[in-house]
Amino acid sequence: MNAHRHSYYEAGARERLHGLLDAGSFRELLGPAERMTSPHLPPLDAPVAFDDGVVVGRGRLAGRSVLAGAQEGGFNGGAVGEVHGAKLTGLLERALDERPAAVLLLVESGGVRLHEANAGLIAVSEVMRAVLAVRSAGIPVLVLDGGQFGCFGGMGIVARCCDAIVISEEGRLGLSGPEVIETTCGVEEFDSRDRALVWRTVGGKHRYLLGEADVLVADDIGAFREAAIRLLDTVPDLSLDALDAEHGRLAARLERFGTCRDALDIWSALGIGQPARLPLLDTDEFLTATADRRA
């Protein structure tokens, strides 16, 4: 209800970057004037975008130099094509040279752009490889997820390859999207038209409770900015011990919740009182109600 809040969910990619970084500090690389468009869309008679649906550049966050990329859900749902992926990969590789305080990925994507088939798949895998290269160079890669299309498919994997995810309740994170699950496994497995089910399964609150997202914020560009600033000193840890610990955590999670049919069952199992009310709570109330109860 705060009129001074600026919705992250409803903003476009450039609006998000301008609101997130220090005022006036963002400089776009390979901007729309360069007309770097997809070579795969015109043969299909599909429209192109002059930025191929992703904005990359450098700026400052709390005075510190960062590189940042933001996907534009308004163009093909942020789907990753060859040029789109190459811009993200280039941004990440630039980090190895420039050594910024962090790389910020403002994800909003349904995954690979199906029109571009293998070129899109390869592009996503190159982004993953670049993320890991940047992290092993000691530079944190931080993900912000709060856009209208969520973060699914290959970008869902990319997001989980990074150091930390900041998510809003409106943000969604997953591998296969709800419609894909329903199509492949049947409506009995997952009813993609049950909006309440979809949101409590892939929505930010559940992803935060499961530990897949690290920070839950309100749908406000300012709140994302504050959270990103607090994560700037994250030290990437790609050691074998860290990987083993993560695998152990995932195995324990499967053990504990593997038989749950619904997020509500998981919330009950986490010992959260009145789990059905969680979706309605605003961010602060939710964090209070679930303090120390995350998986």
Binding site: M1, S7, E10, R195, A196, V198, W199, R200, P279, L280, D282
Partner: peptide, 24 residues
Amino acid sequence: AKSMKDLVRASGGLYDPPKRFRNW
């Protein structure tokens, strides 16, 4: 209010929207 949930919050939880308008 920008969403159905905002309307519910504005009502102090008194408004109970039909299922098809909910995402919770």
